[in-house]
Nucleic acid binder design. Sequence first.
DNA 1: TATTGTGTTGCAAAGTAGTTGCAACAAGAT
DNA 2: ATCTTGTTGCAACTACTTTGCAACACAATA
Lengths: 148, 148
Amino acid sequence: MPLPQTETPGFLQSQLMDRGIRLTRQRRAILSIIETAKQHLDAAQILRKARRIDPQVDRVTVYRTIGLLKRQGLIDELDLMHVQGERHFYERRTGRDHMHMTCLRCGKVIEFESQLFEKLKTTVAKECNFSIVVARLEIGGYCKACRT
Amino acid sequence: MPLPQTETPGFLQSQLMDRGIRLTRQRRAILSIIETAKQHLDAAQILRKARRIDPQVDRVTVYRTIGLLKRQGLIDELDLMHVQGERHFYERRTGRDHMHMTCLRCGKVIEFESQLFEKLKTTVAKECNFSIVVARLEIGGYCKACRT
DNA sequence: TATTGTGTTGCAAAGTAGTTGCAACAAGAT
DNA sequence: ATCTTGTTGCAACTACTTTGCAACACAATA
């Protein structure tokens, strides 16, 4: 007997459920887009993609859902050095923080994880007596291909 | 014999002059504000302060001058974790990069310089074959006073 | 010191990204 | 099946920044 169309809820969905946050048709669409994104998406891109799943999703709902996920610490917001305008990009929050290198010429984004980054955070938190919630390390420069 | 009112040109002014960039009355006002700022200022604050020196400075000129200084690599742009809206803040670029910790509750900004940061940049540049132009490390969290 | 050419400015208007108020609606608990 | 409370869509709005263009002024040269 096959399960009904209850697709396995993704990480974000189950996180919200665990926290007693109401799941709506629109939220499910938005969450699944963020969850399966292969690059960093901005609000407009999330809207466009979510509408392919549920054409009724509204721009405002996207912004409100992004806000919710940010407040819940489930996604991180990136600027990617404002290389392509002032918009913000989003990604699922993973265990360890990583940095983003954006090529100022071709716009390519390279992600990099380093223990040195973790160490730096620990040091800073201790030395400055500051309790860190989010750390965003963004680098702009030129990738190998664009350095000619 | 006292020098005329030719105030010693600041660092930014002389940098622009060295690069053959035209100095105007308005630019001088804006540069001096950025140069002597004690905190990080956004475009609107720079405008307000510059107008106290030269009431004729226009909003648009502030934006254009900020753009110029950014392109010349003479100032850095900060978001300060968007704690107080979406505006950008600016600061004179100094030799070594430093990080900015913004308190999510009171908005206080702590600056911190660390050799670990320099080391991290070197490592990343090497390992990713990426030539770094700007590195921005912004941290959000709670300062000692706000941690209760 | 007057002239000149090119870069800069101010204004108004438009653009982009994100937010808010509110009535209608729907999730999920009972 | 009902009900409560959180969520949605719409339209209008806010904040911040950019653009087009004619007038202007810096600073190089004569």
